[in-house]
Amino acid sequence: MTGINFLHNNSQSQTFLSEVLLLGFQGLYSYRFLVFAIFIIVYTFILCGNILIILVIVSNGLLHSPMYFFVCNLSLLEIVCTTNIIPVMLQLLFRNRIRLSLFGCLVQLYLFGTFSATELFLLTVMSYDRYLAICRPLHYSSVMHFRFCCYLVLASWTTSFLIVSVVIGFLSQQDFCGNINTIDHFFCDLIPVLGLSCSDTSNVKMIIYLLCSLSVVSPFLFITMTYVFIIRCVLNIQSVTGKKKAFSTCSSHLTVVYTYHITLFMVYVVPTNGSSLEVNKVLSLLYTVITPILNPFIYSLNNREIKAAIHVNIIRRFKGK
C-alpha cells in the first residue's frame, strides 16, 4: 500500500515514518548566539521593511499604480515566505536539531513551494507591466487597469497552488520508512524530503523535475524576452534623461529577478548529488533570507517616490506637521 503512513507496519516488520529530524547547521553550533542574533536582525528588517512598504503604498494615493500594486504583493509574499522558514531556522540554531512531524514537514514544504512559485509568477507579471509601460505606453492605461492587475495576481497564486498541489500529491504517494528520518537542511525542502522515501522515486523525480523546471525556466525565459524588447525600446529613446529614467525603473527588478531565478535554477533544475548538500544550503539561504532582505532596499526603499511618500506620510506625522 502506498501513501504516507503513520506508525503502521508493512509485512508486519516495516515501520513507517511519523516524524523527521532537521539537522540544520551542525558546524555553526559553537557560534549559535552570534548567528542567532544575525538572523533575528535580518528577520526583523525583512518584516519591518516590507510592512513599511505595504503601509506606505496603501496610504499614499500617488502610489496607487499597477507597478506599486505588484510591489505591495511582492512585499506580502516576502513576509509570509520568510515567516514560514526563519522561525524554524532560529530553533535549529539553539537546539542544533529539531523534530517535526512528517505532516508538519510537508505543510512547510507546501507553503514554501506555493510562496516561491507565486513570487516567480509575480516577477513575471511585473516584467510584463514594465514592457507595456515602456514599449506600449499608449495602451498601458487601457490594459493594466485595476481589475486586470487583480486577475494577474490571482492567476499567479492559483497557478502556484495547482502546481505545488500536484507535486505534493505525487510526493504523498511515496512510502516514508522509519529507518531514514534525518534531513540535512534547515527546512523541509523538496529534494531532502524526497530522499526520505524508501520506495522507487525515479518516476516521481522525473515528474517533479519537469514541473519544477517549467515553474522556474518558463518565467525566466518570458522575463528575458520582455527585457530584450524593453532594452531595444530604451535604446531608441533620444533623450538621455528618458533613457536613465527607463533603465532606473527596470534595474532593480532585474536584480531581484536574476538573483532569485539563478539560485532556484541551480537548486531545483541543475542535477545535484550528496556532495552538494552544503552548497544547496548556501544557495537556499540566498532565496529564503538574502533576497527578501535586499528587496525592501533595492526594489522600493531606493525608489524616489517611495522615499518621498515615507517622508510625507510618516516622518511629518511624527513631527506633528
Rank of each mutant, 00 (worst) to 15 (best):
R317K: 14
L196Y: 10
I180P: 00
D200K: 11
F33V: 15
S59F: 15
Y128M: 06
S197Y: 04
L102P: 15
N181Q: 14
R136Y: 12
Q108C: 08
T249K: 10
S276P: 04
M266R: 00
L93F: 02
I41P: 03
F36R: 12
T82P: 05
G178T: 10
C198D: 13
V217F: 06
T263D: 00
S65K: 01
S202M: 04
S202G: 04
L92I: 07
V256A: 04
V88T: 12
K321V: 12
Y268T: 09
S252M: 05
I262L: 05
F170C: 15
S199E: 04
F318Q: 02
Y258G: 01
I168V: 06
V193F: 10
P219L: 02
S141I: 15
L196V: 14
L214Q: 09
C150S: 08
I231W: 03
C135V: 01
V234D: 05
V256E: 06
C212F: 08
S197V: 03
L154H: 05
N295T: 12
F229R: 05
K321I: 15
Y209M: 09
S202N: 04
T288M: 09
P271R: 12
F170K: 11
L106F: 10
Y31Q: 09
T114Y: 14
Y209C: 08
L196A: 01
T2S: 09
I208Y: 00
Y287V: 04
N96Q: 03
L120V: 11
Y299T: 01
L210M: 03
G61H: 02
L264C: 10
P192V: 07
L264W: 02
K244V: 13
N303F: 10
F39R: 04
F187V: 08
A308D: 00
C135A: 06
I79H: 03
S252A: 02
I38Q: 07
T114N: 04
I183F: 06
Y258M: 07
L76N: 03
S172K: 09
T158R: 02
I41C: 01
A308P: 00
S141Y: 15
S172I: 08
V228F: 12
V125R: 02
V107M: 13
V240T: 12
C177G: 11
H64C: 14
F220H: 00
V204F: 13
S59N: 10
R317P: 01
Q238G: 09
R232M: 05
M1A: 08
S197N: 07
L77S: 08
F45T: 08
D184A: 14
N181W: 14
C198K: 03
D189T: 09
F16K: 13
Y209S: 12
I262F: 11
N60S: 14
F187L: 09
T241L: 07
L93I: 13
G274D: 03
K319M: 15
N73K: 02
C188T: 09
V71W: 04
L17Q: 12
